[in-house]
Design a protein around this nucleic acid. Structure first.
Lengths: 256, 256
DNA sequence: AACTCGGGTTCCATAATGTGAAACTTTGGA
DNA sequence: TCCAAAGTTTCACATTATGGAACCCGAGTT
């Protein structure tokens, strides 16, 4: 189906592993067989290989569960289970896709702050955002956090950073409606002329939004990539990240 | 080398995964190549497959790290990081090897108590030990815990359960020296006539012993398997389990 | 700039390895 | 006891993995 080149056996085995690990509950052999649609024999062999390698094991009932290697990783004191550690792989991936700067932002004290960043590989556009507080209303991540109630609405005057900054409350609210509709937010030249960002939400187990991930770069390059396309990619990738946080994709995606 | 039948590609890929996950530090491509001794091309393809499946990812520096699936598992609230959960795979494995009852025992209130058990597949020998306190000096696990200082020496009279129970303190101490020398302990008919057990220590990150795993069954069957052989198997397997707890095999294996 | 060294990926012919249908075994139910 | 379901092993076939060599790319060097 989605094989690029090369190792089909490994990919199939990995798919099995994925199913076993992702669904917290023990997976039965037959459920795996017809979920992947492989022959019983093939499935059996692959699972045996995984079992030999201690990547899965069969519990008492004969169902498959994540094996010792997973426990090992989980037990590592160094395996920071915090957000930025979890998000790293996804962010690296997004960085490769877009080749632009990727940021992970969370609300802090009524503003938003980036807690992790993967730099663009271009020279232009690789400023550091980690730790610097920026006005949320003119960033893509900020809009996401506003839209889904992760950040309380700003009080007082909305700062005008550029001619494009939204300073009118009604205008902002209108934008937020749009964000919720599409699932992602954009900010074109609103914080700084020539700087565009696209962001989407990261949800936790109860469906609430806890962070936003943004991709940002020169307006021209982002436009080349396509804002909508980028938004959709972000949403898709972050759905995966949300799953890591325990968010069940099926569930209501309410906004606080 | 140690392939039974079937899927070599998967096993090789798994071996790579193992190296990447086990050594907490990021692994470089070439280190993987010459550690496994596979062709560069093969290694490259396998790693690409693993990367596509999000089982590993390349960080900024190009080194390989455990991928999203591992984070996912680590983040699971259900992923009990406690001892018995961690030990399960190993215990199941031992159960299959020996086909006897496997117990995980920890010290509690000066005695020892089993906190998890995998039953033998034989009818004879499958009693439940979980939760029942037994006199430590006539069990294999107890001797292990004594030997490595996980359990303070017993006070008062040593209970005589059978004619083979060690009731003499000097005799016990002598046995403990032997335990430390070999790395495992045995108990033949000491708790109950006809019941033999072999046990070895589980170490945690600082090298101290926190638990013992024992294999026990009818003296005759255990003898058939070979006490020494069983002891060695236990030591080897538990070395792996100890690694899960962060114990660096190289480190000093001091006994408290 | 041109040259080269080392790490890494891609190509390619070869055959070894993985594949699925079906036969077989085992388990559990009625 | 007989049957159905669940899983494993067998087997003939060709798809798929393999490793050597060629290639690529970036970082030093002259």
């Amino acid at each position: 189906m989605a094989a690029q080149t090369g190792s089909q056996a490994v990919e199939r085995a990995s798919a099995l592993l994925g199913l076993i690990v992702e669904s917290g509950a023990p997976r039965t052999f037959s459920s795996l067989v017809d979920e992947l649609g492989l022959a019983k024999s093939t499935t059996s062999r692959l699972l045996q290989a995984l079992e030999r390698s201690r990547l899965v094991y069969r519990d008492r009932t004969g169902a498959f569960r994540p094996g010792a290697l997973f426990s090992l990783h989980a037990a590592r004191p160094s395996a920071l289970h915090d957000l930025s550690e979890l998000a790293r792989p996804t962010m690296e991936h997004l960085s490769e896709l877009s080749r632009e700067t990727v940021n992970l932002a969370v609300p802090r004290g009524g503003q938003l702050v980036s807690i992790d960043q993967v730099d663009s590989c271009y020279l232009v556009g690789a400023t550091n955002w980690v730790g610097v507080d920026v006005p949320a209303h003119c960033t893509a991540s900020g809009k996401v956090l506003y839209a889904y109630g992760a950040l309380p609405r700003p009080t007082g005057q909305l700062e005008r950073r550029t001619a494009h900054s939204p300073v009118d409350r009604a205008q902002l609210e209108h934008a937020l409606v749009e964000v919720r509709r599409r699932g992602w937010a954009a900010s074109l030249d609103e914080l700084e002329i020539g700087l565009t960002a696209v962001a989407a939400p990261v949800r936790t187990v109860d469906g609430s939004v806890v962070a936003a991930v943004s991709v940002s770069g020169p307006t021209s390059r982002i436009n080349d990539y396509g804002i909508t396309r980028l938004g959709d990619v972000l949403v898709a990738e972050l759905r995966g990240l949300s799953a890591l946080l325990g968010h069940q994709p099926g569930r209501k995606e309410g906004f606080a």
